[in-house]
Computed example of a mutant assay.
Amino acid sequence: MKNLSKQLVDKSVEAFIIGLEIYNKPTIRYRIEGFSFFICNAWELMLKAEYLNRGKSIYFKDNPDRTLSLDNVLKKIYSDENTRIRLNLERIIELRNISTHYITEDYELKYAPLFQACVINFVNEIKRFHSVDITKYIAHNFLTISASYEPLTNEQIRVKYPPEIAEKFIQQANEIDVLSEQYNSDKFAIGIRQNLYLTKKKDEADFVVSIQRNSPSGVAIVKDLKDPSETHKYSYGNIISVVTDKLNKDNIKLGYKNGFNQYVLNLVIDFYSIKQDEKWAYCHKIGKLESYTYSQQFVDFIVSEIKKDPQNFVESLKKSK
């Protein structure tokens, strides 16, 4: 088994390096899909080697010719479903699985923070599990991935792609934004961003602007219409995970044995007629299909209502039906 484990680790390192080389090569347009394939392969081989080292079999009992999938071994090594390393890799696995159906290069800047975290996670975990120092195979500076594409706005995405693909893009990007903010962990996403602030202290400014008409670098404060894809970023599933996470952080235990799940969320939606109020929910229509996304206000509202009486919150909703 030791020999097999070493072979898996060696192949894992090769897959990892190929993934980085594909992603950081500017002439390759298929780099997001290519990277997701190879980084998943690298993780699968590395985790299978660790599973073998723990004295476990990587083969299915009822089919000895078939080995465990990455999903299988990921859940066995990281049994806590809230482990940030696992959550990060699960998102990239989703990307790998849809890459044959959707063109994803336009959302590179959305996935790049997840990719960077995944790279660092791999380097740390292969060192922890197998005492392999990746920097002996590839220079440290090549472990930083570079995103070169300018992000498209949601409106540009809708113009460029058919409705089904456009809405899928927007939904995935919104979920990444929501989860990155909620988890707030370098193990899930490592972002690079530039923030601009207005200040009256000239000596603290990097550059000077003016709201005067004759200024060479003028700015203006404007109000615009809000895109519901920007204001209502939470999917149904995200509502459950984010509310649960917020309750756990505040050490609030819901007086319902199954916790905050689909059943409880449906009670909330029905009781407060959430889908009838665009402040809370927005209906996306593609042909005859309808789907809803929800606002940050709705998340905050649920948590605040639970905090008032966590032990009787669910029962009060049930009695009102």
Rank of each mutant, 00 (worst) to 15 (best):
A112M: 10
E105S: 02
N88F: 00
A112P: 08
N88G: 02
T104H: 01
T83V: 11
R66K: 13
E94W: 06
T104G: 03
T83R: 05
T100F: 00
I98S: 05
L87V: 08
E105A: 04
R86A: 10
D106H: 11
I77Q: 10
R84M: 06
A112Y: 10
Y78A: 00
H101A: 04
A112K: 02
Y107F: 08
D80M: 15
R86T: 07
I98D: 14
N72D: 15
T104S: 01
E94P: 09
V73R: 05
R86W: 00
N97G: 01
S69V: 08
S69M: 01
N82Q: 10
I93S: 00
R66D: 12
I103N: 02
K75M: 07
F115C: 08
V73N: 05
N88Q: 10
I93T: 02
K110I: 04
Y78E: 10
E90M: 07
I92G: 07
D80L: 15
S79V: 12
Y111W: 11
I92W: 00
N97W: 09
N88I: 13
L114D: 08
T100G: 15
N82S: 07
I92Y: 01
R96G: 09
N97E: 13
K75D: 14
I93D: 02
Y102M: 05
H101C: 00
T67P: 13
N88K: 01
K110P: 04
N72F: 03
T104K: 02
K110N: 08
L70G: 04
N72T: 05
R84G: 01
K75F: 13
Y102Q: 08
L74Q: 01
L68E: 08
N88A: 08
E108P: 12
T100N: 09
D80T: 05
I92Q: 03
R96K: 15
E108L: 05
K110V: 08
S79Y: 12
V73W: 09
T100R: 07
K110C: 01
E81R: 14
A112V: 06
L95R: 13
L87I: 14
Y107H: 00
L68C: 05
E94M: 04
K110S: 10
L114Q: 00
S69I: 07
L109D: 09
E90D: 10
I85T: 12
T67D: 14
Y111C: 12
S79G: 00
E94C: 02
I93K: 00
E90T: 14
I98L: 11
R84E: 10
R96F: 14
I77L: 13
R91S: 12
E90Q: 07
S99C: 13
N72V: 06
A112F: 10
T104C: 06
P113V: 04
R86L: 10
I77N: 14
R86E: 10
E108C: 02
L95T: 05
T83Q: 14
F115G: 12
Y111Q: 04
N97F: 11
T67E: 15
S79L: 03
I93V: 14
K76G: 04
